[in-house]
Amino acid sequence: MHASISAIEYFLPEKTVSTADLSAEFPEWSVEKIDTKTGIRDRHIVGPEECSSDLAFAAAQKLFESGACRPEQIDFILLCTQSPDYFLPTTACLLQDRLGISTSAGALDFNLGCSGFVYGLGLAEGLISSGQTSNVLLLTAETYSKFLNPQDRSVRTIFGDAAAATLVKSVDAPRPLIGPFVYGTDGRGGPNLIVPTGGMRKPRTAESGVASVDEGGNVRSPDNLYMNGAEIFNFTLTAVPESLQALLDKSGFRLEDIDLFVFHQANKYMLDHLRKRLKIPEEKFQLAMSHCGNTVSSTIPIALKHASVDGKLKAGSLVMLVGFGVGYSWGATLLRWS
């Protein structure tokens, strides 16, 4: 048996922050400038009482309501998040109960950011092809907005909250429909995208909540998310082309064999540069972030959903997914759309 993506749904919280809103808050950055750099028109932001599990729950409910499957058919829940409801218990366990999924199902959280969807597919494919499970509910959910300082325009222009629910199911197929996979990790990049406090290494204190202004005029405290955009950009220039080539080498396909490239939707500027450097035709390169921003581990399933709805994906289409970001962590895989 092999794994196949059977359905994808996603959920965005109701409140939005538009580029015009941000430009009004930061007058030195025009709407046009933010648009050009990010390609993002709106970011959806959770309310104070809304958590990752709420977003994941809503996305999963949409999946079940679509008729893709029933909750009782799910035999494993994988949840990717870096903003869980609690240190413990595991958010996926809470969702098992809330979604009415059988107590015989397995459930686990895994902590990754923008590479998370590819890793989740790898885990789901392994669970299914080894015969351990048949219907994996792969959830990605983040509320990064809770980490952002309101005065840090460098990250507020980019990140939005969201969750996606992907059904990965066992199918009788002559060959794998997902894979092969290539992975990569370089922990030296950890300090370049980090929330320094709040874990066991550096618990939050009154002092850690005190904000200061950096050389770029952005305000944040150690309790907030910090991103060194230039370092992250530099990392992607090497990691993405290398993982793409490694995946082509491993699979035996050529670049021109790929019908659609779906990269982590970091920001338009970065993706445009990568696309041109990799000589990928514009019509084969999916962009789907203007309505929701960089939603971390949910960007790839959201982009896949849009590609499907827009008719860019047909049965048998060969799709390359590349996720990259916080960690540093990256991964790439191929899938046959079915």
Binding site: G229, A230, F233, N234, L237, T238, Y269, H273, K276, R277
Partner: peptide, 18 residues
């Protein structure tokens, strides 16, 4: 600075860190 990193990469594939 991000734009300059992209420019150097486009120019001759030079990878420059901040």
């Amino acid at each position: 600075i991000v734009g300059f990193i992209a420019l150097a990469d486009t120019h001759n594939g030079t990878k420059l860190g901040p």
